[in-house]
């Protein structure tokens, strides 16, 4: 192996090892520690100057107490389950909203497609925080939506949408919609249209042709889109804290508060490790589909 090749592999490898993998080891270690009033606020801390007995003593002080604490307090169970539920519902909603858009784009005239594509990508380049913020003005009690509904006489009293899970669903669907649309559009656009023509020649109605041919063929796009929405939605922090208020419980928010408000680093670390364990399965599945799609492309 030449020096050049070694450096080419070594530099990014080392960077990721030090700044991605090692930090997880540290989180795991701190999740086994106890909280104290000191800087840093956990004990024990590893002191290598004491040599081997120091390390042994250090290891003896680590325990799974924080994990036991998490299983005993109903708050954490509720937060994990509610995050999974909110992520699942939002993913399904995003699919229902995103699929027709992707379908409409793929069926639009070819000269229109780049423009439509740009219109889907443009919100993605705009600040995430601002896109969430835009909904505060719309959904709040005296917000634009309530004003509008009262003006047309549909409701007499303003609806309470802000600070409920509904507001979080709206926020997640809105901000993650491009991630759902683009992979589905990519599969629909590649589809061989002669299949549909054949189905119609053979007497299939348009609707049944869609369910028999188009929908199954866009499966890889649907799966990719759902993972791209579902995985980040579970750990979402900004949306539940701006739109969900105290009415919604999500694990990302619990972790944040555990760390910044309660200053309980060991419990925050344990929350993170369990969240990671929950995410490992969907992440591995996602990577497998990604690799499969790449092989299919190649």
């Amino acid at each position: 192996m030449t020096i050049g090749r070694r450096a080419l592999i070594g530099i990014p490898y080392l960077w990721l090892l030090l700044l991605f993998l090692v930090p997880f080891g540290i989180i795991f270690k701190i999740s086994l520690s106890d909280i104290t009033l000191a800087i840093p606020p956990y004990t024990p801390t590893l002191d290598l100057s004491e040599g081997w007995p120091g390390i042994r003593d250090f290891l003896r002080q680590l325990d799974f107490e924080n994990y036991v604490f998490l299983t005993e307090d109903a708050l954490y169970w509720k937060a994990y389950l509610s995050s999974l539920r909110i992520a699942l519902v939002s993913t399904l909603l995003a699919l229902c909203v995103g699929y027709p858009i992707a379908y409409g784009m793929a069926r639009a005239a070819p000269e229109w497609r780049p423009t439509l594509m740009m219109l889907v990508i443009l919100p993605f380049w705009t600040s995430f925080l601002i896109r969430v913020y835009a909904w505060i003005g719309i959904l709040s009690t005296e917000g634009y939506l309530n004003q509008f509904l009262q003006w047309i006489g549909l409701i007499a009293e303003p609806l309470q949408i802000m600070n409920t899970p509904t507001a979080v669903y709206v926020g997640i669907v809105y901000t993650y919609l491009p991630f759902m649309i683009l992979p589905i559009y990519a599969t629909l656009e590649r589809m061989d249209d002669s299949l549909l023509e054949a189905a119609e020649d053979l007497g299939c109605s348009r609707l049944s042709a869609f369910w028999i041919i188009t929908f199954p063929l866009s499966r890889s796009g649907i799966i990719a889109g759902c993972f791209l929405v579902f995985i980040p939605a579970i750990g979402e922090f900004v949306i539940p804290s701006l739109l969900g208020g105290s009415g919604t419980l999500m694990i990302g928010k619990v972790l944040w508060e555990e760390f910044f408000s309660n200053r309980d680093w060991p419990v925050a670390s344990a929350v993170a490790i369990i969240l990671l364990l929950i995410l490992v399965i969907p992440i591995i599945l996602f990577q497998k589909t990604l690799e499969k799609n790449q092989e299919a492309d190649a």
Partner: peptide, 26 residues
């Protein structure tokens, strides 16, 4: 290596943030 390239793409930001902070402090 490829795992470390793909994992951050889907890692919740709260975990990435917390882990890096704990690294910098330690």
């Amino acid at each position: 290596f490829s795992g470390m390239i793909y994992a951050p793409l889907v890692m919740p930001e709260v975990i990435t943030g917390l882990s890096l902070l704990l690294l910098f402090i330690s």
